[in-house]
């Protein structure tokens, strides 16, 4: 049974618009609608995968949850507290519980700080530990992420990409958080190293009871690590379901196209697979299409799709989709198959 107690993070109608200024007096002429009405629930101890192409707003969702951006409107509840309404100081203290692992392990570590200072900095910032305690904690964390504790006095440039990402993971764990936003933590790493970091993240989740929001564009990795998966397109979530449900029974035409575009390391697979190749590029989030955002590239769109934004509704238990064509399900399938031939 799901109760409200299970829900760790709840996002309601989150909107994040970045203003565009033009001219000498810097008048606001428009806004990039990076996130435009996203509602999600993240349950205690689960991994929610958030996938989409570049520019769809998935990173902005992650950052807005952590209040790294002040949301334009909407609510972010963490254990019942609305983070969007918190004053700076209580929010700062709240950050102990909410941490982030960044995409680029080369850009997210200060090259002039030693590993000890990088990992210990969060403790120092909260002013609650002596130097000796920090040293001990750093040693403990390095062991936890399977790095040699003797590395504490080295600088980031002495490490490889995979090792740097482990340092980033250790830093996120310093304050014993319960919720971590993983923003494409493996996409900058080599294939053989990706598996190491993913296994590490899974072990840590099991041992420390962490909850992850796992942002990625690699759909096969997301299926592997997530419990539930949300698919974003141009600032809105178009589909949300359990991971096996979304891969076995995708309903939204964008999810279908995305899944069919994944390269699979099996040459025989390509002889039988039907691909849905989407035409064109993602429209600009400064001027998104009316109605359904996906209609300009959608193989089954018609005039009715331009009229209003499709409601994000539950079509089967736990499976949400935002498409007016779904419901005439068999119909949708046929049309897509025809288009892709």
């Amino acid at each position: 049974m799901k109760t409200d107690n299970d829900i760790l993070v709840k996002i309601e109608n989150l909107v994040m618009h970045f203003p565009i200024y033009r001219g000498v007096i810097r008048r606001q002429v428009g806004a990039v609608r990076a996130v435009d009405g996203v509602s999600l629930e993240i349950r205690q101890g689960e991994t929610l995968g958030l996938v989409g192409e570049s520019g769809c707003g998935k990173t902005t969702v992650g950052r807005t949850i952590l209040q790294l951006y002040k949301p334009t409107s909407g609510h972010v509840y963490y254990k019942g507290t609305d983070l969007a309404k918190l004053k700076p100081e209580p929010m700062r203290l709240m950050r102990k519980d909410l941490q982030m692992i960044f995409q680029d392990p080369y850009a997210s570590l200060n090259p002039r700080m030693t590993v000890r200072d990088i990992i210990g900095d969060p403790m120092f910032a909260f002013g609650e530990a002596s130097g000796k305690q920090i040293d001990e904690r750093v040693q403990e964390l390095l062991k936890l992420v399977r790095l040699d504790p003797d590395f504490a006095n080295r600088y980031p440039h002495e490490f490889s990409g995979g090792q740097r990402q482990r340092i980033g993971v250790a830093r996120a764990l310093t304050t014993n958080p319960s919720f971590i936003v993983c923003d494409e933590p493996i996409s900058a790493l080599d294939v053989s190293i990706q598996a190491q970091v993913v296994n590490l993240l899974e072990d840590l989740q099991r041992d420390l009871g962490l909850t992850y929001l796992f942002i990625a564009h690699d759909l096969s990795m997301v299926r592997h690590i997530s419990d539930r998966v949300a698919v974003m397109y141009l600032g809105v979530v178009v589909e949300l379901a359990d991971r096996n449900e979304i891969y076995d029974n995708p309903l939204h035409p964008y999810t279908k196209a995305l899944l069919s575009a994944i390269p699979v390391p099996d040459p025989t697979f390509y002889e039988t697979r039907q691909r849905i190749i989407l035409e064109g590029d993602v429209p600009s989030p400064a001027n998104p299409p009316s109605g359904c955002r996906f209609r300009t590239r959608c193989p089954i769109a018609d005039e009715s799709c331009a009229l209003e934004r499709p409601e994000f509704r539950e079509v089967s238990p736990g499976h949400f989709v935002a498409c007016i064509k779904v419901g005439m399900q068999t119909n949708t399938k046929e049309v897509i198959n025809q288009e892709s031939v």
């Binding site: 192409e53 564009h217 995305l258 069919s260 390269p263 691909r275 190749i277 989407l278």
Partner: peptide, 11 residues
């Protein structure tokens, strides 16, 4: 490139 664009280019 993104996966859907990658599929376009490979094709």
């Amino acid at each position: 490139l993104d996966v859907t664009i990658q599929a376009q280019i490979v094709d």
